[in-house]
Design a protein around this nucleic acid. Structure first.
Length: 484
RNA sequence: GCCCCCAUCGUCUAGAGGCCUAGGACAUCAGCCUUUCAAGCUGAAGAUCAGGGGUCCGAAUCCCCUUGGGGGCACCA
């Protein structure tokens, strides 16, 4: 498909490896990906590693893994800005030559005291343009002093810049509220402003879809495009995702890195569906959309402007929903790594896949995340279960009555030949009357005996899966736990 | 302090002047189902559409102001 300007759609996701990607970063990636796929365009991955001091080891790998995990495949890249320094320098020379940029020798110390002064006088912190029009002798003096300059953009002093944002509409900034921002740092690396403009141009990016936090630096970028005589891409800023405290997502918000969600057992499809609904909607009722539907339906027109607080409860619900939709085979595949990871070490590995399948068919409806599964299913795998013996007692059930019920039930079970839920229930249910107990009471007691828990899958299905031997052992164990 | 953006149930949102006595989803509560827990189904509660002015026959929807929230203002991205 062609965009309005007649060129094909090319979008990029351009994270910086200064940390692990969080929900907000990934939502941006997702929207770019959906936009590209919808328009049959290209999704390009670019690593903005121009700050060597903040680089986090392993971050690039985590970024790539996260995208792969979610199925957000890219068509080009990853490109690394740190390997493209020559391109930036060349462009800076051009800007310098044409008077759109200038060398600035101000020391970090001077800049800091300047800002300090400005703050004291309640002035907006802005570079005072000290080096903007240096006299020639002053320049030579500074050059010979050995100070390494930075390159700054010569921002127009008057006028204003207006651009049309695909999400927010017309946005205008007066030039006198901008300052002469740095293009090239003294270490020779470009700043974000420079590098992203150059790369977006060189890579013929058609649409820049990024978080709203970039809205206020967009006029700088527009000005740069103009100075370079390049056509700017279309900009579309995406509403922010906020933490529960309504502040920009950060490390302070705990589990916000996307790889945490993988570890917690969320499914990529659920994650994608949920994230898509943060800032975008199809209509007034559709909540569940497959990847294909999302691609087909996604449009910038339906992206909202309001920042969204992300709601983990809803994510959990959606994940549970996707989990329940899985067929048993898929479910086993998904759950197996989590069982291996979280079941106690003394449980024999490898786990028997057929047995795991039977177990999971019982807990499938009960898990909201894959990480809950080992916990929900642990009693199926342990030889001995631990629980508070007090659970065996009830209102009408003292130790003696409980012991009797357990003994009777145990004896009855020993007789059962066909070990399936229906047969088991047919044999055990009548015992309630004989023991003068309510069925709920008896079943509740047996549930504790067999699972050690008050909440578990249906009793007879559980007994069926557990097997005769293990069940009878648990009946004996319960008897031993009961006070004499 | 300055600049920019935003403003509908607790949260995510629908709503592009009359269909709104504001719809859906999550969460909450209740009922049904039921041997427990889930799931499922049904229902309830929950938003004077931030407040105030306009415009209009008519405003959640358009304009202005106020307030609130967010973002930006680095040799970070």
């Amino acid at each position: 498909m062609q965009s309005e300007s007649g060129t094909s759609v090319r979008v990029r996701f351009a994270p910086s490896p200064t940390g692990y990607p969080h929900l907000g970063n990934i939502r941006t990636a997702l929207f770019n990906w959906l936009f590209a796929r919808h328009h049959d365009g290209k999704f390009i991955l670019r690593i903005e590693d121009t700050d060597i001091t903040r680089k986090v080891e392993g971050a690039v790998e985590v970024i790539l893994d996260s995208l792969q995990w979610l199925g957000l495949d890219w068509d080009e890249g990853p490109y690394f800005q740190s390997q493209r320094l020559a391109i930036y320098r060349e462009t800076v020379h051009k800007l310098l030559k044409e008077g759109h940029a200038y060398l600035c020798y101000c020391s970090p110390e001077r800049l800091e005291t300047m800002r300090h002064e400005q703050a004291k006088q309640k002035q907006p912190p802005k570079y005072d343009r000290h080096c903007r029009d240096l006299a020639q002798e002053e320049r030579t003096r500074l050059e010979s002093s050995g100070a390494t300059p930075v390159v700054r953009f010569r921002t127009p002093l008057e006028g204003e810049t207006t651009f049309h944002d695909l999400v927010y509409g017309l946005v205008t900034f007066r030039h006198d509220t901008l300052d002469d921002f740095v293009l090239l740092k003294s270490d020779g690396y470009p700043t974000y402003h420079l590098a992203n403009v150059i790369d977006d141009h060189v890579m013929t990016i058609s649409h820049v879809l990024r978080a709203e936090e970039w809205l206020s630096s967009t006029p700088r970028h527009v000005l740069l495009y103009q100075a370079l005589n390049w056509q700017a891409p279309q900009f579309g800023h995406l509403p922010m995702i906020l933490g529960p405290d309504r502040a920009k997502l950060s490390k302070r918000h705990g589990s916000t890195n996307i790889n945490e969600y993988q570890k917690e057992g969320y499914l990529p499809d659920a994650m994608v569906n949920f994230l898509a609904l943060l800032g975008w909607s199809l209509d007034d009722r559709t909540e569940v959309l497959s990847r294909e539907e999302l691609i087909k339906q996604f449009s910038l027109e339906r992206v909202g402007k309001t920042a969204a607080v992300f709601n983990k409860d809803k994510l959990e619900w959606m994940n549970g929903f996707y989990l329940r939709k899985l067929n048993l085979g898929e479910y086993v595949q998904q759950a197996m790594p989590f069982l291996n990871r979280d079941l106690p070490g003394f449980v024999k590995r490898p786990l028997d896949e057929a047995y795991v399948g039977e177990v999971l068919s019982l807990i499938k409806e009960r898990a909201k995340t894959l990480a809950e599964i080992p916990q929900l299913a642990s009693f199926f795998f342990l030889d001995e279960i631990q629980y508070d013996p007090g659970l065996l007692l009830g209102k009408k059930l003292d130790a003696q009555a409980a012991a009797k019920a357990i003994t009777v039930a145990s004896r009855q079970l020993q007789e059962v030949e066909i070990w399936d839920a229906t047969t088991l229930e047919g044999n055990v249910r009548p015992l309630a009357g004989e023991l003068n107990l309510g069925t709920g009471e008896l079943f509740g007691l047996l549930r504790i005996v067999v699972t050690g828990r008050t909440a578990a899958p249906p009793l007879f299905q559980t007994i069926a899966v557990l097997g005769k031997k293990k069940c009878l052992e648990r009946f004996d164990a319960a008897l031993r736990l009961l006070p004499a």
